[in-house]
Amino acid sequence: MTGRTAALAVVALGVMGLGAVARWRWPDSASALDCPREVVRLRPDGVATCGEGARPTGAQALALGRRLDLNAATAEELALLPGVGASLARSLVEAREVAGGFGSWDAVDEVPGVGAARLKTLQSATVLGAAPDTGAVW
C-alpha cells in the first residue's frame, strides 16, 4: 500500500508541476500586434496585420475580440452571435430601422424574441454606437 501511495503522490506532484508550467507559459491577453485595434487589417490569407489589408467583417471582428455596433451591424453579422440566429437578427435590424437606431438597452429589450438571456449576450458582444477602439461597423 505504501508503494501505491508514493506512486500516486509522485503522479500528483507531476501533474501539479505541469499545471504550473502551463500556467506560466500560457498566452496572456496582450495583443500580438504592435498597433491599436482600430488599424488591425486582414491579409487575403486571413492573417491579421497592422496597416494594409481589408477591414475585418463582423465575424472576423468578433474573432479578434471586437464588439459589433448594434446600430450598424447587418442582419448577417448579428445572426453569427450565439443565441441570436437569422430570425432575431432580422427583427433587430427591422426594429432599429423603425426607431432610427437603438438609443438604450431597454429599446433592444423591447424587440420581440430578445428576453433577458439574449439581451445579456447582445450586451457582451455589441455596443450601442461605435466602440471606442473600433471603426464604423464594430
Rank of each mutant, 00 (worst) to 15 (best):
T2P: 08
G3I: 03
R4N: 02
T5Y: 07
A6E: 09
L8F: 13
A9T: 08
V11R: 00
V11Q: 00
L13W: 06
L13R: 05
G14F: 09
V15R: 07
V15A: 15
M16P: 06
G17M: 00
L18H: 01
L18V: 08
G19N: 03
G19I: 06
A20L: 11
A20Q: 09
V21A: 13
V21T: 05
R23A: 15
R23L: 14
W24H: 15
R25F: 11
P27S: 09
P27R: 12
D28C: 03
A30G: 10
S31G: 14
A32S: 12
L33E: 07
L33F: 11
D34I: 02
P36V: 15
R37H: 12
V40K: 04
V40D: 00
V40Y: 02
R41Q: 12
L42A: 02
L42V: 03
R43W: 02
D45C: 12
G46N: 08
G46R: 10
V47M: 05
A48C: 11
T49F: 00
C50D: 03
G51N: 09
E52A: 10
A54G: 00
A54M: 06
R55G: 02
R55F: 04
T57H: 08
T57G: 14
A59V: 15
A61M: 05
L62H: 14
L64I: 12
G65D: 10
R66Q: 15
R67E: 01
R67I: 00
R67C: 02
L68P: 00
L70R: 05
A72R: 12
A72D: 06
A75G: 14
A75M: 07
A75Y: 05
E76Q: 13
E77V: 09
L78N: 04
A79C: 11
A79L: 09
A79S: 15
A79V: 07
P82V: 04
G83S: 09
G83M: 05
G83L: 07
V84A: 00
V84C: 02
V84R: 04
G85E: 11
G85P: 13
A89V: 07
S91D: 15
V93S: 05
A95S: 14
R96W: 09
E97L: 14
A99L: 12
G100W: 01
G101V: 03
G103K: 13
G103W: 10
S104Y: 12
S104V: 07
S104P: 02
S104F: 11
A107G: 04
D109K: 14
E110H: 00
E110Y: 02
V111N: 01
P112R: 14
V114H: 05
V114M: 07
R118K: 11
L119C: 03
K120M: 13
T121C: 04
T121L: 09
T121K: 00
Q123C: 10
Q123H: 13
Q123T: 11
S124C: 05
S124H: 13
A125H: 14
A125K: 13
T126P: 08
V127P: 04
V127Y: 08
G129S: 00
G129K: 08
A130G: 13
A130D: 14
P132Q: 12
D133R: 04
T134W: 01
G135M: 04
V137Y: 06
